[in-house]
């Protein structure tokens, strides 16, 4: 399959089940909502070392937020409910509670519940106030700028992590430009995040390492500087490869995001140095979710 001069490999991306929740962060203005959300979703690129994968899903108008203020929604993914609960609570306490004018609400009300303000309330040192509004319990925690308002719990739903595709280009700048175009298109899709910096990974990994202590190491088959040193997957004209990783609330959401992203990359086409689209997989052994590139782009 070739789209606008870009070859689509006959391969598939492989993803695995995760647990996820959505939170809504509001503030006096959009800028401060982003400050809190950026802090909460910081250092959350990969579950391998961060404990969770998180990102800002979208910006919310005041009409779409529980308290009628500007806000953003963020998605947080982890390998299990317990790990997710720990990450959400820690990040809520250190990043949102601390951020001026912020409030924190559950963005998912189905599924099992994990604490949001349930334990943070003790920061109020006995001055915290519970309010049950429309069947949901909120906590009003007195803080130095007024009150921090927080849902007691948020819902956890099954999700999918690790959807991906690789962009192979003739130069680093062209690979990055293609990634930026893809991310811009994919950010319009609800229920997904691209957790890496700017949505892009340049250090894709393979399973295993020659060093016993490491479970993963650089994906040498896609490293352009190793073309003559390893069993390479790259043709001579490829000088740079970048990856976009997608976590979503369902495999359909990931498929939609992948299609939009690859379409945006292909729109730039071979004329802009984009030569191939490939994907990372582990031979179907990693997870039950497979995303064949050609099927998605058909």
């Amino acid at each position: 399959m070739i789209i606008n001069g870009v070859a689509i490999d006959d391969t598939f991306a492989e993803a695995f089940p995760m647990k996820a929740t959505r939170v809504i962060i509001t503030a006096l203005n959009q800028r401060w909502a982003y400050h809190a959300a950026n802090a909460m979703t910081g250092f959350a690129t990969s579950v391998i070392a961060c404990g969770c994968e998180a990102g800002i899903e979208r910006e919310l108008d005041p009409a779409d937020t529980p308290d009628g203020r500007p806000g953003v929604s963020a998605l947080i993914f982890a390998m299990g409910g317990k790990g997710l609960a720990k990450q959400v609570e820690t990040r809520a306490g250190q990043c949102v509670l601390t951020s001026p004018t912020s409030a924190l609400f559950a963005g998912i009300h189905d599924g099992d519940k994990i604490p949001l303000g349930k334990n943070l309330r003790f920061f109020g040192d006995g001055f915290q106030i519970s309010k049950q509004i429309a069947g949901r319990r909120y906590w009003r925690i007195p803080v130095m700028d007024g009150e921090f308002l927080c849902d007691e719990t948020t819902g956890v739903v099954p999700a999918v992590g690790g959807g991906n595709f690789l962009i192979l280009a003739e130069s680093q700048a062209q690979a990055l430009a293609a990634c930026e175009a893809a991310i811009a298109a994919m950010k319009t899709v609800p229920n997904v995040i691209m957790p890496f910096p700017g949505g892009v990974v340049r250090s894709g990994s393979k399973v295993g390492s020659r060093y016993k202590a490491l479970n993963a190491s650089t994906n040498d088959a896609f490293c352009p500087t190793l073309k003559g040193q390893t069993v390479t997957a790259l043709s001579p004209e490829i000088e740079s490869v970048m990856e976009i990783v997608i976590d979503g609330l369902s495999d359909q959401d990931i498929r939609r995001a992948m299609r939009l992203g690859i379409e945006a990359v292909c729109a730039l086409g071979a004329a802009n140095g984009v030569r191939r689209i490939s994907a990372g997989n582990y031979g179907g052994k990693l997870g039950p979710f497979l995303f064949p590139l050609r099927e998605i782009m058909a």
């Binding site: 009628g68 309010k131 509004i133 429309a134 909120y138 009003r140 007024g146 009150e147």
Partner: peptide, 24 residues
């Protein structure tokens, strides 16, 4: 004197309870 963030939520919920006399 304070601006309390929970009040809009609370007052909006009053409409769902059948009273729209309180405003926001």
């Amino acid at each position: 004197l304070h601006t309390l963030g929970f009040l809009p939520l609370l007052l909006r919920s009053f409409v769902g309870l059948g009273s729209s006399a309180f405003g926001i």
